[in-house]
């Protein structure tokens, strides 16, 4: 059987698959397990970071697979898994309109204050 597995890279999820729309089922989709994105918190107090993706039939299996695939070397203390289709992503083609206008707005950085010498770690 020819199972086609499509993998979307972070930030490249086509619009028709984003936003929780049910992926149109055909035979191939039924045979393939859905893709999940995995987020790991490396230690208490830090944020969960995206570490990669994997295939799993359901949420419980996604967590277990994530444990086996991404925490083998003590990388984490907490796992989040979310089905990739529920991730909304910006369109790379819009990058110009979305991000470049911030380029010449240096005043948005709080760099115009004189900091006392005693203040460290800013």
């Amino acid at each position: 059987m020819n199972i086609q597995v499509r993998k979307f890279y972070y930030g490249d999820i086509p619009e028709e698959n984003a936003g929780g729309n049910e992926i149109k089922n055909n035979l191939q989709d039924e045979a393939a397990w859905p893709l999940w994105e995995v987020f790991i918190r490396s230690k208490q107090g830090l944020d969960h970071k995206h570490v990669g993706s994997l295939h799993a039939a359901d949420a419980a299996m996604a967590i277990e697979n994530a444990r086996d695939v991404y925490t083998r070397r003590m990388e984490g203390v907490s796992i989040w898994a979310v089905e990739s289709k529920y991730i909304h992503a910006s369109n790379p083609d819009d990058a110009g309109a979305l991000y470049e206008p911030a380029n010449d707005k240096v005043y948005r950085h709080p760099t115009f204050y004189d900091l006392p010498d005693e203040l460290k770690h800013m």
């Binding site: 397990w33 994997l54 295939h55 799993a56 697979n65 086996d68 695939v69 083998r72």
Partner: peptide, 11 residues
């Protein structure tokens, strides 16, 4: 049967 389970069983 699938990469993730291959890793799980060898773990």
């Amino acid at each position: 049967p699938i990469l993730e389970q291959d890793i799980a069983i060898t773990n």
